[in-house]
Simulated scan of single mutants.
Amino acid sequence: MMSLASCKRESLTVRKAILLAFAIVIYNYVMFSRDQKPEKDSGYESNNSSSGKSSPDGVGLIGATENRTVNVTASGIRTYTFKMRGKKNQTSKQTSRKKHFLEDKVVVMDDVWTEEKMAAQAKIFADRAAELATSCEELRDDSVFLRNISAIHANLRWVPKHKLIWCPVYKAASTTWMSNLLLLAGMKSASNSFHKQVKKLYPPPKSPEERQRLLETSMRMLIVRHPLERLLSAYRDKMLRGDQFQRLSHAIKTKYPDPDIDEDATHPTFHQFLLHIRDNMKKFWSSEGTSKVNPHWQPVWWTCGPCQIMYDAIAHMETLTADQEYIIRKAGLRDLAVNAHTHSSNLDSFKGTDEATFSYFSKIPKKLIQQVSNLYRHDFQLFGYSPDKFIAMGTK
């Protein structure tokens, strides 16, 4: 029979082993939490941390200013961040904005997508394509509407290896998919010439026959957005940052003086920006497209030729999570691409799109909103959007 002293020694040994194991667990947890700690200036609430675990709504966050890989452990999907647009000698305020500008919202890709759910999403895409075809038929007599097909082909990003063709629409998840195309090329970082880099990697085939063959055998993807929401996003992104758009920003303030703001204001108001858009688009229409329009507010129908290219995957920014999930799965990119939404226009005090939309458009005359909407009428008609809600927000 075991002596009392032996029992005590064995019990003490077991307790020490348990304490040691517990200490190891605590140490690993602390080290993991420290490595995954988000930036203090993330611009998101603390319950949406980038710890690698999903938040209560099934979303993880990554900050795109770090040059390292982040794993979304809940799904096992590899996600990457990109060191983009970095500049030397930035002030602390500029650095803070840069981090906020480049933050991504990454959706955890779980396994709840059954065959039934895929079929339901496929039907949504088929319905959108059918509605687009109907609208195209109604617009077929518009002489300005159809472009030179080679010009449209040059706007596309051709990915033959994965049988994917995508038309980038700026301010409609373009940065997200630029990142994904870099991932498909095996790249985990991007230079300052982010868009040029992707354009060089995925040019159109030289032969018209090869282009046609790929168009017939590839998924043809287009992501669209409410035209007025897109304009607001362009304003918040490009007019509120003091970089390559600084000259245009100053020109808008000079040409469209606003008596309600200080002459020394750093940025033009949204009202001034829409006046610029109105005049810019009037020239575009009167010149039948020869007058240049910045790609960030160029009409989708002009950029992508949706009545000349039969897009079979038309995603909407309003349903981006589900739409991208379907596209990634259908194209066989689950282990290569990221279902993310890059937040590139949060340079003001608004975190929610609805809050920002009402605040900005409620200060704009209804007549101006109507004028701008009319100039984007083809985008409204082709993709099933209406300007009525935004006009109702405006002032008299």
Results as ranks from 00 to 15, higher is better:
Ile152Leu: 05
Ser143His: 13
Val169Glu: 01
Ala151His: 15
Pro168Asn: 01
His153Asp: 02
Trp166Cys: 09
Val144Ile: 06
Asp141Gly: 08
Trp158Gly: 03
Asp142Arg: 15
Glu138Met: 10
Asp141Phe: 14
Leu164Ser: 10
Val169Asp: 02
Val144Trp: 06
Ile149Asp: 05
Ser143Arg: 15
Ile152Trp: 05
Ser150Asn: 14
Glu138Thr: 09
Asn155Ala: 12
Lys163Val: 01
Ile152Val: 14
Trp166Asp: 01
Pro160Val: 04
Ala151Arg: 15
Cys167Pro: 03
Cys167Ser: 02
Leu139Ser: 13
Ile152Gly: 02
Lys163Asp: 01
Lys163Gln: 14
Ile152Glu: 00
His153Tyr: 15
Tyr170Glu: 03
Lys161Gly: 02
Arg140Glu: 04
Pro168Arg: 05
Arg147Asn: 11
Trp166Arg: 08
Pro168Phe: 01
Glu138Pro: 03
Ser150Gln: 13
Ser143Cys: 03
Lys161Asn: 05
Arg147Leu: 07
Leu164Asp: 00
Ala151Cys: 05
Leu156Tyr: 08
Arg147Ala: 08
His153Gln: 05
Tyr170Leu: 09
Trp166Tyr: 15
Pro168Thr: 01
Asp142Leu: 09
Asn155Glu: 02
Pro168Val: 01
Leu139His: 14
Asn148Gly: 08
Arg140Asn: 10
Ile149Thr: 07
Ile149Arg: 14
Leu139Tyr: 15
